[in-house]
Design a protein around this nucleic acid. Structure first.
Lengths: 141, 141
DNA sequence: ACTATACTTGACCAATTTAGTCAGGTATGT
DNA sequence: ACATACCTGACTAAATTGGTCAAGTATAGT
């Protein structure tokens, strides 16, 4: 089981954006420099964040991105969903001969995996961008 | 984020093993047939389960595998650990210029990922093979 | 002793996913 | 007009996954 960089980058970038969000739009170039994430890759990530209305874009000189909502309204669930960082549990295919279909342990793992998904998602549902900003500030005293 | 088949197969195979464990050792061939998992792949998985002393092997005719412990003593943590199904969180490398080192959001994601790992592991720590056997039996009434 | 069964080990491989790069755009403030 | 910065899609190298294949070794039963 693993978490990919894309989700982590999205979180890092949004925390960065939230911190510098107050006055002007924040350009991806700045985020790229501050966070050490490739600009090209950031563009891919932000196009997804925009599609899910987590950020808004402002084009042209002095343009950049702005949060669409307040930091406490943006949950990790929303972020991960936007960038396709989802909990995949590799279930059995319905019409394959392999797996649990009609077999002895049918559904054991299905129920288990469903429980696990719920468990993980409940974590993501609770954490907001604001929570992360707070813990970030505490660390930088 | 995803869970691999290896972990799922290990769980399925062990539930199967636990059910038929009472009288004789259970051969991988039987598990393979009942669960629809490739024999060759099962061998790889069981060699890892054996190394972590979750199962014992008995060679020769009528041989097979037996659980090393009682089903309630075998937690999902143990199983996943044995087959290297671990929560990888793609952390920043220490000496790379990329990532969070010395950057604005240093440790935001580190703390977050650590919390998540704990959250997930607490789930795995609680669930035992016995729990799965029970829910399996309930399903087959 | 022979043989069938079943565990043991290690090399190999195709398909998929990941984490990007590259090359072109288009919109807009000054 | 021009620099900035968003936008889009194609491409790719490396790693991972989910196996297969081949060649063993150990043991119970005959």
């Amino acid at each position: 089981m693993k978490l990919t960089s894309k989700g982590r980058y999205a979180v890092m970038a949004l925390v960065d954006l939230a911190r510098f969000n107050n006055i002007n739009p924040v350009s991806l170039r700045d985020i790229s420099l501050r966070q050490g994430i490739s600009l090209d890759y950031l563009e891919q990530i932000f196009s997804k964040l925009k599609k899910d209305q987590i950020v808004k874009s402002i084009r042209g000189t002095q343009g950049g991105y702005v949060l669409s909502k307040k930091p406490n309204e943006i949950k990790l669930t929303n972020i991960f969903h936007a960038v396709d960082e989802k909990v995949k549990t590799v279930k059995c295919k319905k019409d394959s001969k392999k797996g649990c279909n009609g077999k002895a342990t049918k559904c054991v793992t299905h129920n288990l995996w469903d429980e696990l998904e719920n468990h993980i998602n409940s974590f993501f549902d609770k954490k907001s961008l604001e929570d992360l900003l707070k813990s970030n500030n505490e660390n930088r005293i």
